[in-house]
Design a protein around this nucleic acid. Structure first.
Ligand SMILES: [Zn+2]
Ligand SMILES: [Zn+2]
Ligand SMILES: [Zn+2]
Ligand SMILES: [Zn+2]
Lengths: 147, 147
DNA sequence: TCTCTATCTGCAAACAGTTGCACATGTATT
DNA sequence: AATACATGTGCAACTGTTTGCAGATAGAGA
């Protein structure tokens, strides 16, 4: 059984269904760019299948479901909407500058010690994949203090 | 000059104004509970000064301003609204369970190494005060796997 | 105290995302 | 293939938050 089939089987065993809408959202995430907004996902579906329309509410519900089963990340990059990405490859986090809106992609291992400590101390399994950390980049820290 | 006066002076020097609306939001944050939603702030203002009304947009803009000058934190606790809190006392972070919505308050020092490493490696000044980390609490991890 | 202007406010419209509900459908079972 | 029901979908209404704009005002300077 392939990984994909196994995943589907495992999800079905837990009472989840694989509907056409869900397949379309997954396909859009596979074909699209790394970070996709809900609207970009909708546009991609329309572009590939002009005769089909998927309700925005269904897209949002599908994305939440994919996040809950750990297939997709939901991330803020400091814009006024979330972006979604398939998990499992091209692993990284983001430093988002609140001064210039710049985004620096960083190695994800920086959070490993925190994740381990949260598990050891509190038994808490942190969902820390593909997240953003907000703050000020080096350039934007200059001229921060009164003057 | 008191700390408070010095702060006001420093803000004014940067072109910021201290308007009645901003004073009211600050006062509400001082009098209210630790975590306040924008709506709770509005309600607190109305309760204290029934004749005055502050537009919600102004409250949101004031909260963003207070956050940008590092006086207030803006935090998601997994509800569909943000909560705001004055910074500087009762320092902590949150572990928010996506299974049962429970919130565990934790010691803030756990993120100190990350903050230091981000500064050293990338020159990035992370705004990591009073944040939330999402995941699953010990109890909600039981029965997570297919069955 | 008066003037000036950059900043701030209120309003209304817009936006991202959620929710309630009635109907539709995927999937297990037969 | 037909049945049955839990789960999912579309729609419309709603919530929390942001934005554009025109008029108001805090605070600096004269
Ligand atoms: Zn920057
Ligand atoms: Zn990314
Ligand atoms: Zn839990
Ligand atoms: Zn808190």
């Amino acid at each position: 059984m392939s990984d994909h089939d196994e995943l589907i089987h495992s999800l079905r065993a837990r009472g989840h269904r694989l509907t056409p809408q869900r397949r379309l959202v997954l396909e859009a995430l596979q074909h699209g760019d790394h970070h996709m907004s809900a609207d970009e996902i909708a546009q991609t579906i329309i572009a590939h299948y002009p005769s089909i329309s998927v309700d925005p509410a269904t897209i949002y519900r599908t994305l939440r479901w994919l996040r809950d089963v750990d297939l997709v990340s939901e991330t803020s990059l400091g814009q006024n909407h979330m972006v979604y990405a398939l998990l499992g490859s091209d692993d990284h986090h983001h430093l988002v500058c609140e001064g210039c809106s710049g985004v620096i992609e960083i190695d994800p291992s920086i959070l490993d010690p925190v994740r381990q400590e949260l598990k050891a101390r509190y038994g808490f399994a942190a969902r820390l994949a593909h997240i953003s950390i907000f703050g000020l980049c080096a350039r934007c820290q200059i001229g921060e203090h009164e003057g």
